[in-house]
């Protein structure tokens, strides 16, 4: 029972950044625990992604490329992962805390009677115990969680996007890539992927280094336009408060907060957002927070590092111009 395994998730042949962050974390743990790192990649582009996983820190990789695995579906992915992990019995398994990672980890936990810790933002090795920190009560508290008597089962952790550094690739690193066969045939899989509608090149909130977010103060759907322009200059993702989503001004996938997405970018620019406790729960761990609001008493200013008291329809375009000038 040894080894640190990382499941690399991919969409249309491109790995999620959080998976590389998991490889980076695995490398750090491996150096500490003296165990090898193995990456597992299934589906489109698996062999190439396996090589990339090795360049980013894995010692070896296991890959499976098959028509049943092109589009992610839980059953074939979990069945294969469950078989591989069950046979090799690694001591630790890392996945991304994403829609796919959470489901795959949940299924695996059932098969292997393994404990799981989701949404991990910190890991500390303390003798034989591995302590994970994870936000609780939707980010209002922080809990330290450990595995109880893992026995033969791996300790499974799902790590939050952007909580651990993204490792660069090292072209000099090489290792063995083992190709394996899938477990389920198409006839054994009850779900069929019908279609996929991408978000059209928009940067996803959970991956974004910068988020420009608008609340009730934007006043309507067209009020997001100046924010979109700022997003364009900064390569930022567009966020929104619950109030503006509930008003129908912007689709739900943009919502930040307790009933939306929990984010932690390097820079969070809150425009016309008062900063209700539910919103704060979704963004308070951002590295630098900027508030732009007409109301100097808005609670968001208590959380922000920098603020401008003023009309967002004047401030945001001025900020866009300033960045255009200064960033060339």
């Amino acid at each position: 029972m040894s080894g640190i395994w990382v499941w690399i998730e991919q969409h249309e042949g491109k790995a999620a950044n959080v998976s590389w962050e998991a490889v980076g974390l695995a490398r750090t743990l491996a150096n500490n625990l003296g165990e090898p790192v193995t990456a597992l990649v299934f589906g489109s582009n698996a062999p190439a992604l396996a090589e990339e996983a090795i360049r980013r820190g894995a010692d070896s990789a296991v890959a499976c490329e098959d028509t049943t695995l092109v589009d992610y579906r839980l059953e074939p992915y979990a069945a294969l992962l469950s078989k591989l992990v069950g046979e090799a019995k690694p001591s630790i398994l890392l996945v991304g805390s994403t829609t796919r990672g959470i489901d795959v980890m949940g299924a695996l936990a059932v098969d292997l009677e393994a404990g799981t810790i989701a949404d991990v933002v910190g890991i500390e090795v303390d003798g034989g115990t591995i302590k994970a920190t994870t936000p609780a009560y939707s980010g209002k508290l922080m809990a330290t969680v450990v595995h109880a008597d893992p026995g033969d089962a791996p300790r499974i952790f799902a790590i939050r996007s952007r909580a651990f550094p993204l490792p660069d690739g090292d072209a000099g690193r090489t290792g063995e890539v083992k190709m394996v066969e899938p477990v389920l045939a198409e006839d054994d899989i009850v779900t069929k992927a019908v279609s996929f509608e991408g978000t059209g090149g928009e940067i996803s909130l959970t991956d974004a280094g910068i988020i420009v977010s608008g609340g009730r103060g934007v006043g309507g759907p067209e009020g997001y336009e100046p924010l979109r322009e700022l997003c364009g200059v900064l390569d930022a993702a567009l966020g929104a408060s619950r109030a503006s989503v509930d008003a129908g001004w912007i689709p739900y996938e943009h919502q930040v907060g307790q009933t939306g997405k929990v984010v932690a970018p390097d820079l969070y620019i809150a425009c016309g957002i008062s900063g209700a406790v539910q919103h704060q729960a979704g963004m308070r761990t951002s590295k630098v927070i900027v508030a732009i609001n007409k109301d100097p008493e808005a609670p968001i200013f208590k959380l922000a590092h920098y603020g401008i008291v003023g009309d967002l329809f004047q401030v945001v375009p001025a900020l866009t111009q300033a960045f255009k000038k200064k960033l060339g």
Partner: peptide
């Protein structure tokens, strides 16, 4: 049946240090 993970500690988030710098 017994749980496979346990919470060993739970704490409030530290309050944000420092004041908001208002730019005028």
């Amino acid at each position: 049946i017994s749980p496979k993970v346990k919470w060993v500690e739970i704490e409030s988030l530290p309050p944000r240090e420092g004041e908001c710098q208002i730019l005028e």
